[in-house]
Amino acid sequence: MPHDDHDHPHALLPPEPALRVKALETILTRKGLIDPAALDEIIDTYQNKIGPQNGAHVVAKAWSDPDFKAALLEDATSVVADLGYYGRQGEHMVVVENTPEQHNMVVCTLCSCYPWPLLGIPPGWYKSDAYRARAVREPRKVLAEFGVTLPEDTSVRVWDSTAEIRYLVLPMRPEGSEGLSEEELAALVIRDSMIGTGLPKVPS
């Protein structure tokens, strides 16, 4: 055996990842420890029900309603929970506001912490070694890889999610968006703009 079984029981499962998952699912299902229909339900939830549209709703509302925005920046957890956005990996929310003076960006260098109820499951790059390693040391170079260049006098604040607090970036409302409805505004809010690696779309 390549591994000591007692330290690394996973080495007993098939090495090919899809088969490894299937094997573990099968073992657990046969013992009655997993309901395959529950797995389908979990996948459906994060594939189809919970995603960045939730965060976009919050951002568009903050752009439209100053009182909502003030409350959101003061105590995001209860404010977004009132909109129905609460749950696993979003129990303690903090919203950080981009301004001409300061741009915010979120990373989890230790794993992949991310505000699930507002943004869903993180994209592959967010979980990549390259992003985790570099976002804290050279955020501007990382931003350039997303096509984002900030003015030299805008400072960058990178939030490393080392605890159970989950961060959402409130991007600046784009120019030319005056008079748009909340729904039209939400369509401008891309996922990456709420992580801080992108900017909202500019209305055409």
Partner: peptide, 18 residues
């Protein structure tokens, strides 16, 4: 090994379509 903040050598970040 998971504690990789600041590490060198991981290459570019590859963004994904929204």
């Amino acid at each position: 090994i998971h504690d990789m903040g600041g590490r060198f050598g991981d290459g570019s970040v590859v963004p994904e379509a929204e």
